[in-house]
Design a binder for these strands. Structure first.
Lengths: 343, 343
DNA sequence: ACGATCCATGTAAAGGTTTACATCATGGGA
DNA sequence: TCCCATGATGTAAACCTTTACATGGATCGT
């Protein structure tokens, strides 16, 4: 029984002495089957070790039990914990997750579109902030989909993320409370909506503290470690230095810390730094980085839950789910240094 | 044409004015089809936007185009980069990867076994070092499979990993070259084969350096940060201290560094520390951790390549592929301190 | 010029499931 | 007692492919 080819519904039917239709019903709609029959069927299933052939089932139903998850970079440390939430929730519904990885290459995106077109996935989770299917993005017929972190630019797709404005606000408020007023914002505020919202949080915080717009220092950067470092170099060529750096994400913050360290400054004595995301490295920096935590596992879980809602009702209850970001206070923030204060 | 239900092979056949068999042949075995016909078919495919229904194809072929990847913890930072290699290689073969996550719970393992039994995966990649299917592990009929990092304990399955003995040897040799003789080995050497091989590398290195077995210090630990810290505490209750800590993995090393830091020691002035794996955090520690790098993306790529070999030939060329681990020299190792030398 | 061979194509079965519809038995109401 | 509703089960079609086998035409060798 562990040899030979796998048992089919027909084997079960023969042993239970019923028709295959009855077997199918006993499995999927047990209430439509007499108790005694159901018992026989269950026994037969146990004997044969039968499991439904998912291929056949999907073919008949016209819908698979897979969810495709597409991210620009699955090597991203931010990604793996989300995956945990996604996987757990999917599996609780009897679905599997299929993962894909575009590296921002539309060509690769198109290959996933083929997956979708060939009915291999019942739903789609997108990390890209944009439909990654190149020029076909507009015309593509997509299964129920949800975005993670950001709304999907060209898709009109519900999403799950964190309240970036509130998160950023928590970071500025901490800096303000410590006495900072010259706070630089470092990071991309254009390409990604999440980032521009963090910028909004920054502005809102400084507005509330009465710091005029003219005194704010904004530096662009694409969210990489390198960009943090570069932005810092630019800053040191100006005549005004901030007392604190509020970075759009942890990578940027790490770049800033490295740059500051290389110049011989001490954090937080000389400068305070905050990040956003709470990537795994954040707590291992010296000093440990004060940052805003994304509840990653929860985000994954709720994105998948939202997707299943879409899959059953066609009416989603929410079109945007924002989770609460938490301020994680570590050691990279203190009161501003006198040294640079008077500048 | 982007509305309505997706085109089937029959739609293509009708437009191209040929039979569905010819269409199928034009796609999969073009050499068996006349040039002119192939052209007509290709045009019809372009017009309809036809893509093969993977469900139907898999059903007919009795084999899907998915590879199941099962890891104990997909949130592990070691995991994501491997995933990149796995995914790229799989996709190059037209396969998708399905990921699963057991958390060492045999119950969850069993659910993946169902996936397998229902023909949803043509192959299996295992990270567990053990078949994760509980009591059914022995009798389960598995598709072609390959292990990553370690041979699969109860499976007789080929695997791809790193040469742990050689890697460990590189670490000890570095410490020896710096002048250390009292080198503690910290970490689990029993449950995981990879770990016990690292231990072998340690022993081989000390043998070569003529350090008698009696002078070696071995501490158990399960490979977590906490275990590194604990082992260190135990050590400080003894009367003999090593001058260097060779840790079975980076997590353990991080635990040791934290513990040493808490006791006010400086690394590498007072003690040297090495790790193994080169997890992302390693380079962000202060001091940055000297460790052995696992070529993760390459491991993933070659594991998947090996799997495809199994899938085509039934004779695998190799049953064990060991990649070369590199020594990554950072700042956690220096010559031994005088301070503890004379003890 | 004829039979053998080969090549391109078509016909139809098979793969395992779900489900609309048909069938049949049972029990209740009149 | 008869009819009808109800509930349990069976029959068969459909989902979309791939491919063994059949067919028919053309080509080649003698």
């Amino acid at each position: 029984m562990s040899t030979s080819s796998p048992a089919t519904i027909e084997d079960v039917a023969r042993i239970a002495q019923v028709s295959i239709a009855t077997v199918s019903r006993a499995i999927h709609t047990p209430e439509k089957v007499a108790n005694s029959t159901r018992l026989k069927v269950n026994q037969a299933i146990a004997i044969t070790g039968y499991t439904t052939n998912a291929m056949a089932r999907s073919l008949r139903l016209g819908r698979s039990n897979m969810i495709l998850v597409v991210a620009p970079d699955i090597g991203d440390p931010n990604f793996s914990n989300i995956l945990v939430g996604l996987e757990n929730e999917a599996r609780a519904h009897g679905y599997g997750i299929l993962i894909g990885h575009t590296q921002n290459d539309p060509q690769r995106g198109l290959e996933y579109l083929k997956f979708l077109n060939s009915n291999q996935a019942a739903g789609l989770i997108l990390f890209t902030g944009i439909l990654p299917f190149g020029h076909q993005s507009m015309t593509a017929r997509l299964p129920p989909s949800v975005g993670v972190f950001e709304p999907v630019y060209n898709g009109g797709i519900p999403y799950v993320g964190v309240d970036d404005i509130e998160g950023a606000r928590k970071a500025v408020d901490l800096l303000i409370a410590e006495g900072h007023r010259k706070i630089a914002f470092i990071g991309d505020s254009r390409t990604r909506l999440a980032y521009s919202r963090r910028r909004q949080g920054y502005d809102a915080g400084l507005d509330a503290a009465g710091v005029p717009a003219g005194e704010r220092i904004i530096l662009e950067g694409d969210g990489t470690i390198e960009s943090g470092r570069l932005a810092l170099e630019q800053l040191f060529m100006r005549d005004t230095l901030p007392s604190a750096f509020m970075c759009v994400n942890d990578q940027t913050a790490i770049g800033v810390m490295i740059g500051l360290g290389a110049r011989g400054y001490d954090i937080p004595t000389d400068f305070s730094v905050t990040g956003f995301d709470d990537v795994p490295q954040a707590s291992f920096m010296t000093p440990a980085l004060t940052t805003i935590r994304q509840p990653r596992t929860a985000i994954g879980k709720s994105a998948m839950a939202l997707l299943f809602e879409l899959l059953s009702d066609s009416e989603p209850t929410d079109t945007e789910i924002l989770l609460r970001p938490d301020l994680i206070v570590r050691n990279s923030v203190s009161a501003p240094s006198r040294r640079f204060q008077k500048r």
